[in-house]
């Protein structure tokens, strides 16, 4: 019996990159290798204090950044994935869901909540990349739909923070139809005259880009986020050439006309709230 057990086999670390950092205390930026304490990092909205690299964060982190006093109530929080196709690849889907829930503490790849963003009451759906790559299956579609329903019932704006590799293969046809379902729901929100802001974060690709992520009344993104339909590897294979620098970055997508603006995470809340105020009916805005 040894004290420590290696869980993953074959883990190797390039010794050149390796610096002695005790676990739990320090964060090292994967871009500039700058080292800062976890506290400094989270105080800086999980961006690097030196190079502004935006670390991937989950729904709870985004909610803590956006909701006033971190106060929010979750919508449809109890939903989890069925296994409609009894899908089996190298693992069966049911087990994959069970272990992912246990590992991440998340129920699925999106969390929906209602709260105030700088005084503007809103419904926010936020994807979690940690849950099977933020992939969209029935639960993501249904929670998105429930979030839109909540917004319509209470006359609130709806915001979605996307972070996803696309549709979830293990629900195949069902996943594909979530693209249709979320888009259908957004027509209802539009009928109600309520704003929809789509926030695209690193990464947003595949079926999510090809549905609700690109359908915002306003589309905004975090700096340098990867945003595209086909993944970069697939595009590279298709054209048989190296991709130009910055291809499919938020800046590239803005330049080609598919985003309204890019905003650093530290300014996200104020810019989002201002954008919402400018679109909402005047009496709905309370401070």
């Amino acid at each position: 019996m040894s004290w420590f057990k290696r869980k993953k086999k074959g883990v190797t670390t390039d010794s050149r990159e390796k610096k002695e950092i005790p676990e739990g205390l320090w964060y090292q930026c994967p871009e500039c290798k700058n080292v800062m304490s976890h506290e400094q990092h989270s105080d800086n909205n999980w961006t690097c204090t030196q190079c502004d690299y935006h670390e991937k964060i989950g729904s709870l982190e985004y909610f803590s950044i956006l909701f006033d006093d971190n106060a929010f109530t979750e919508v449809a929080s109890h939903l989890i994935s069925g296994d409609p196709l009894q899908f089996v690849d190298t693992k069966n889907y049911k087990d994959r869901i069970r272990t992912t829930i246990a590992k991440t503490g998340l129920k699925d790849a999106v969390r929906v909540a209602r709260g105030k963003v700088d005084g503007v009451e809103s419904v926010i759906a936020c994807m979690d990349f940690a849950f099977i790559g933020g992939s969209m299956g029935s639960v993501v579609g249904e929670k998105f739909a429930k979030g839109v329903d909540e917004a319509i019932a209470n006359g609130l704006p709806f915001i979605c923070i996307s972070k996803s590799g696309g549709a979830r293969m293990m629900e195949a046809g069902f996943s594909l139809m979530q693209m249709a379902k979320t888009s259908a729901k957004l027509t209802r929100l539009a009928e109600a005259g309520l704003p929809y802001v789509s926030i695209l974060t690193d990464p947003t690709t595949g079926g999510v880009t090809a549905s609700f992520a690109m359908l915002g009344d306003i589309n905004i993104a975090e700096p340098k986020a990867l945003i595209g339909f086909a993944g970069p590897r697939v595009v590279k294979e298709t054209i048989g050439k190296d991709l130009p620098d910055g291809f499919q970055s938020a800046e590239f997508v803005l330049e080609h006309g598919f985003l309204d603006y890019i905003v650093a995470r530290k300014d996200l809340k104020t810019r989002l709230a201002m954008s919402l105020r400018l679109m909402l009916k005047d009496q709905l805005v309370q401070n």
Binding site: L79, I80, S81, V139, E171, S183
Partner: peptide, 8 residues
């Protein structure tokens, strides 16, 4: 389309 999906 809104009715499509299986959740528990």
């Amino acid at each position: 389309f809104c009715a499509m999906g299986v959740v528990v």
